[in-house]
Design a binder for these strands. Structure first.
Lengths: 202, 202
DNA sequence: AAACGATAGCCGAACAAGCCCCGAAGTGCA
DNA sequence: TGCACTTCGGGGCTTGTTCGGCTATCGTTT
């Protein structure tokens, strides 16, 4: 549903206000900002925005305007940075609660997501370098060729490409020439998640 | 669920307090901080915060407030996707107005930013692969080792690593073994911008 | 060209609900 | 027993809702 000029202005105002303050403006504040003399005008605009799917409101509640992601405004989600990951090394969880902002399109799949920071060049052949952030979709299974975070029996977690071969045998292919593939039985591996994106800051 | 002004203030206070001390404030401390004369007020606010899913509490326990990781939406910036870039090839601008959502931290430098989609494996040695999105900070100068988008005299734009050598000579190093570096005089090159980030979607 | 209908945008006023705060009495736990 | 949280009733204020009515614009029908 397309927006009119006025509706877009109001949506932008809502976005800015909520971004700054952490809560939505009241009708009165919206009216003041747009020089309206009646709250009914505000109400009508918000009703239209909701009808067109850009915001969501709850009935009769104060400042209860939620801006939904749309073409106009994409958003980022702060995902927890759970730790670092290197070849064959366990995931080293961080003590402090850090987060990484990730564009919402990268986390549009079902299930939980989190971020791991890559240490070392163990995934260099997959164009993932030291210091990159990988976005992981939490899952218990994977398809061939996907990059997985896998937990091996008492040998910690690792990040490898996943290939299912015959008779329940699984090949874990490191993304680095100098490392050889690892073969395990499907019973000896627990998939933690699948890498769905990479972010690098220079 | 959206918060009111007061509710946001209280939630922020709870977060700060717990962040500093490692445990939640008592009702009395909250009341003191907000100049309330009744603990019932505190109780009501916390009840509302719990109803809206921002905290969890256990009945009748002291300082038993747990702050839940609400989906914190930090803001994303929609940067224009100006076109594609490949080794030595001109930037091919797209006809339609497409944008790419990018977390705000990646574009925190001064000046304008835009996004280019990488075509081909010309930057493979810099761990940038076909289909990646590079975030470019628009600038007219660069430091040694930075990855630049450079405009060569009548030879289109290219993406290379930038090294200033002696006597105004500049070495443009392609990020692919099979390509040789390019040497130009600083007068024959116009830097368009510097790559500040990479985003990849699987 | 004129008439029509639909939609956007705006207003004022009456109304209803939620929000925010209070004091006081009650409850559960160490 | 004492401390901290809970519950209850109540009051003032803020905020959202609804209704009737107004103008303007745009595309369609007559």
């Amino acid at each position: 549903m397309a927006l009119t000029k006025r509706q877009r202005e109001i949506l932008t105002y809502l976005q800015d206000y909520a971004g700054d303050r952490g809560y939505a403006p009241s009708f009165e504040e919206i009216a003041a900002h747009f020089n309206y003399n009646s709250l009914a005008t505000v109400h009508e605009h918000l009703t239209n925005l909701e009808r067109k799917g850009y915001i969501r409101r709850s009935y009769n509640e104060s400042r209860a305007i939620e801006i939904l992601p749309s073409d106009v405004f994409s958003r980022a989600i702060d995902l927890p940075l759970l730790g670092t990951v290197a070849a064959g090394m366990p995931i080293e969880s961080l003590s402090y609660n850090e987060t990484v902002a990730v564009p919402q399109e990268l986390v549009s799949r079902s299930g939980e997501h989190y971020v791991l920071k890559v240490r070392g060049n163990s995934m260099i052949d997959e164009q993932i370098r030291d210091g990159d952030f990988v976005i992981v979709n939490e899952r218990r299974s994977a398809d061939n060729g996907e990059m997985v975070i896998a937990l091996l029996n008492n040998r910690g977690a690792t990040c490898k490409k996943f290939y299912r071969e015959r008779d329940g045998r699984i090949r874990l292919q490191p993304a680095n020439e100098t490392l050889s593939p690892m073969y395990v039985h499907e019973n000896d591996i627990a998939i933690q998640g699948v890498v769905v994106g990479v972010i690098r800051r220079y």
